[in-house]
């Protein structure tokens, strides 16, 4: 008989969080895209002022920012999986992962700047 041990022997379990995050962020992005398409189809913005008017609503800015946060998190999990599968030397892989994290953080700041510089 196998003795039950109190110790968890199957890793740090962040794999499950990544797996779940990948799916939750995906569903969130689909919801935002549907909302965005509905807004654009119902207003049919033709010029600059009309596009700015759409993003003038605070809720639209927040929803868009959350969309990009979901996108960047989703991208991180996906790109990390790809790097783990194909880039075998640890130093190269870690370097690339750091590069991905840094670029995603810069994108996040860029997103905030785009959305809130209108005010």
């Amino acid at each position: 008989m196998v003795k039950q041990s109190g110790r968890i022997t199957t890793g740090a379990h962040y794999g499950l969080i990544d797996w779940l995050a990948q799916r939750v962020t995906a569903v969130f992005m689909v919801v935002y895209i549907v909302l965005f398409v509905v807004v654009v189809v119902s207003t049919v913005p033709q010029d600059y002022a009309a596009w700015v008017a759409i993003f003038d609503f605070q809720w639209m800015r927040i929803a868009s920012f959350l969309f990009f946060m979901a996108l960047f998190w989703h991208a991180w999990v996906g790109v990390r999986n790809v790097l783990m599968d194909y880039v075998k030397p640890v130093a190269v892989r870690l370097g690339m992962q750091v590069l991905v994290i840094v670029s995603l953080l810069i994108y996040l700041i860029w997103t905030a700047e785009i959305l809130w510089s209108l005010m």
């Binding site: 996906g78 790109v79 790809v82 991905v100 994108y107």
Partner: peptide
């Protein structure tokens, strides 16, 4: 997915 990450996101 990789192409959407780069150059897609920027």
């Amino acid at each position: 997915g990789v192409i959407l990450f780069f150059p897609g996101i920027p």
